[in-house]
């Protein structure tokens, strides 16, 4: 693993985590959470955990973003915090 990439991705991870919790639009929060999952999938591919990265790419960036968006669609988009 190249540690420079590791550090860059980890910093982006913290940034996307904070953004997805700060943004007031829940649809945007779900999309940013999908980005977070994709970044952490890159991190695992870099660390040699290819099976975990594959699972995270399909499950985290795919299914969980989709079911979050489905729930936001069926409830409401705006959030107080």
């Amino acid at each position: 693993m190249i540690w420079q990439f590791d550090i860059i991705i980890l910093i982006f991870l913290v940034i996307t985590a904070v953004i997805s919790l700060r943004v007031k639009d829940l649809l945007a929060a779900s999309m940013v959470f999908g980005t977070y999952s994709f970044l952490i999938c890159l991190l695992w591919a870099g660390m040699g955990a290819v099976d975990v990265a594959f699972t995270e790419a399909t499950v985290g960036a795919g299914i969980s973003a989709v079911i979050l968006i489905a729930t936001v669609y069926n409830t409401r988009r705006d959030s107080s915090d």
Partner: peptide
């Protein structure tokens, strides 16, 4: 305060 925000936080904790 928002339940979906709480769930996103739970997923971040898990990762």
């Amino acid at each position: 305060n928002n339940l979906i925000k709480k769930l996103i936080g739970m997923s971040i904790f898990q990762t």
